[in-house]
């Protein structure tokens, strides 16, 4: 089975709030000096899901694809260290400034170019913009079935059994192959790579494809192909206030607290 994992390198979601800055003129996030970008945590879980399938099904291959700048090599290497076999970086100035649609478009083109892919696994959303569109976008582009927000993915006779997280439980769907799945954090912690694997991954070469390599028209990708227009980027103002709950007895205090929480529509 040939599995493709889509991985995105994002600004560190653990950037301390006080250091997180927005350039309101350019409508862009200002990179924080000294804080390196990281692999989107949901994508690490996508890799974990793919590797679990690979372990169960013999003769499998996992390819990791990332669309990004040269620095995204680090995210690819991380997935390679976890146990993926090959890495592809889609790096082209033409890809800059794109939206979910152009990203899905480019990734789908790369998957087509790979050829023999049985399944694509993505994180449920990238932890920077939290759009959650690319996974299904790829499915749409490729004309494959898609299932989102999975907590478990198992291979079963030429299909994938996918447990999808619902608000009130989960459902299991049987996905004929090829298919696109997005996984959620309910899948569990991604594995910690063995040092031997880290060293092997460091030696692997990552293939780089440009828009031309994928046969994509520059107008269909990046800012040019983008259908989303960013109006304004703003930083939410964080603030806090303290309300002391009064009451003569602990019971009365608890009651007052419960009432206050209810009034605030928290419970």
């Amino acid at each position: 089975m040939h599995l493709v994992v889509c991985a995105k390198q994002i600004p560190d979601p653990e950037t301390p709030p006080s250091a997180f800055k927005i350039d309101t003129v350019a409508n862009a996030v200002v990179p924080v000096p000294g804080i390196s970008p990281v692999l989107s945590p949901f994508d690490a879980q996508a890799a974990e899901a793919a590797l679990r399938i690979k372990e169960k099904v013999g003769e499998s291959k996992v390819t990791v694809i990332s669309l990004g700048k040269e620095s995204a090599q680090a995210a690819i290497k991380q997935v390679l260290a976890m146990g993926a076999d090959e890495g592809v970086l889609l790096n082209d100035d033409a890809f800059e400034g794109g939206d979910s649609y152009t990203t899905a478009h480019a990734l789908a083109a790369a998957i087509k170019k790979l050829g023999d892919v049985d399944a694509v696994i993505c994180g449920r959303q990238a932890a920077d913009w939290d759009m959650g569109q690319v996974g299904l976008g790829i499915a749409e582009e490729l004309g494959w079935p898609g299932a989102i927000v999975a907590k478990d993915v198992q291979a079963a006779d030429g299909a994938l059994l996918v447990q999808r997280v619902l608000l009130d439980g989960f459902e299991t769907v049987r996905m004929p192959l090829p298919a696109v799945i997005t996984v959620s954090n309910e899948l569990g912690d991604p594995r910690y790579p063995k040092l031997q694997q880290i060293m092997q991954a460091a030696k692997k070469t990552v293939t780089t494809w440009t828009a031309a390599d994928l046969g994509l028209d520059a107008a269909s990708v990046g800012k040019a192909g983008s259908r989303l227009r960013l109006e304004r980027l703003a930083q939410p103002e964080a603030g806090g206030a303290v309300q002391i709950i009064e009451g003569d007895t602990p019971e009365a205090q608890a009651q007052a607290l419960a009432q206050a929480l209810r009034d605030a529509r928290i419970i």
Partner: peptide, 22 residues
């Protein structure tokens, strides 16, 4: 345990990954 087997309790793994990344 850590380097050869990568068998690390989740909380320690989080600390190590944090050291690597941050």
């Amino acid at each position: 345990l850590v380097m050869d087997e990568a068998r690390v309790p989740a909380t320690a793994q989080a600390a190590l990954e944090n050291l690597e990344q941050r």
